[in-house]
């Protein structure tokens, strides 16, 4: 198990390096002078040179990469070229909002999707199963920014139940929670359907296995068979799906943050790209990739814990 964890973490670090190399290569290959794009065609040459120096774009690309990682190891992700504030501070300010949004959406999706999947299995072949099935497929098909825009129109503009923009007043939990409802729901909705389908499909497979018949032959109630005997096995593919999907949850957070003008990583990256603020782009991408890689590793280790057969393979 430990050897496995070490191997996965090593692989994760490698991915991190590759992503950053690709990012630098992209900047290097993008046509046009970033300083001109950022400052406009009428900026003075001195100003342009200053900006290029600040972003380190005058150095060879490979050296930029080495410098970037050398600094990153000491916790220095560079400085915002406009405000001169440390990128790490900017990311740390924005990150909690995005993580709260993503994790709330995920928690909501799991808390609703898994029971719906179980219910489908317990009532398989009935109207309830069919309704859950149709709704699931329906919500999977709707992109989250569409949900975001329509819910914005309905609940914020027409009904005025929820705030339209922002992340709520700092220090005011109720207003923050209210501001979270729509963005989280917009991201979660499709995932509820996704998870419900996934749980149902893997559960139906498990329900055909002989050990389920054994549990039945001892007269265990159906809810217990579904929620304990089948779910423990059926949840494993769902966990992998969710872990891989977290990347996509975070990227829908980027869109949804834009719709709700909600401060967060999404807004940070979009603004930075628009103003060619490369240090901010690089630092933010590094942090987001690191988070993504850690989540995937954590999911794999969790799967190994849940399934004793997998656990033994890693032990041996």
């Amino acid at each position: 198990m430990l050897a496995y964890a070490v191997k996965r973490i090593g692989l994760g670090l490698l991915i991190l390096v590759l992503v950053m190399v690709a990012m630098y290569a992209a900047v290097f290959l993008v046509p046009g002078d970033p300083a001109t794009v950022a400052l406009g065609p009428r900026a003075t040459p001195e100003l342009k040179r200053l900006l290029i120096e600040r972003m380190g774009l005058d150095l060879p690309v490979w050296w930029q990469i080495v410098e970037f990682f050398r600094n990153a190891l000491t916790g220095n992700l560079g400085y915002d070229v406009w405000s001169n504030r440390p990128v790490s501070t900017l990311v740390m300010e924005a990150l909690p909002n995005t993580l709260i949004l993503g994790l709330t959406a995920l928690a909501v999706a799991l808390l609703i999707g898994v029971p719906l999947g179980c219910l489908s299995v317990m009532r398989r072949g009935t109207l309830a199963d069919a309704v859950i099935g149709v709704l699931s497929v329906g919500v999977i098909a709707v992109p989250s920014f569409v949900v975001a825009i329509y819910s914005l129109l309905l609940f914020a503009v027409t009904l005025r139940w929820l705030p339209a923009i922002g992340a709520g007043e700092t220090g005011d939990i109720v207003s923050q929670a209210k501001a979270l409802v729509m963005p989280a729901a917009a991201i979660a909705l499709g995932w509820i359907g996704y998870i419900a389908r996934m749980v149902r499909a893997s559960m139906m497979e498990v329900m055909g296995e002989p050990h389920i018949r054994t549990a039945r032959s001892f007269g265990l109630p159906e809810w217990k068979i579904v929620s304990k005997y089948a779910l423990r096995i059926a949840i494993i593919p769902t966990i992998s799906l969710v872990a891989v999907g977290l990347g996509s949850i975070l990227s829908s957070a980027v869109f949804v943050e834009a719709v709700f003008a909600r401060p967060g990583i999404g807004k940070l990256i979009t603004d930075a790209v628009n103003t060619r603020n490369y240090p901010v782009v690089m630092g933010t991408v590094l942090i987001m990739t690191a988070i993504y890689v850690s989540i995937t590793i954590a999911a794999d280790l969790l799967i190994a814990r849940l399934d004793p057969r997998v656990r033994d393979v890693f032990r041996g």
Binding site: P210, S217, G219, L220, I233, D307
Partner: peptide
């Protein structure tokens, strides 16, 4: 209620009769 109380079935294949993760 009768199953597993009054009537018990030992199934054909002991390899797959038990839940692998419990």
């Amino acid at each position: 209620l009768l199953r597993g109380d009054e009537i018990a079935l030992v199934s054909q294949d002991p390899m797959t009769a038990f839940n692998p993760v419990l």
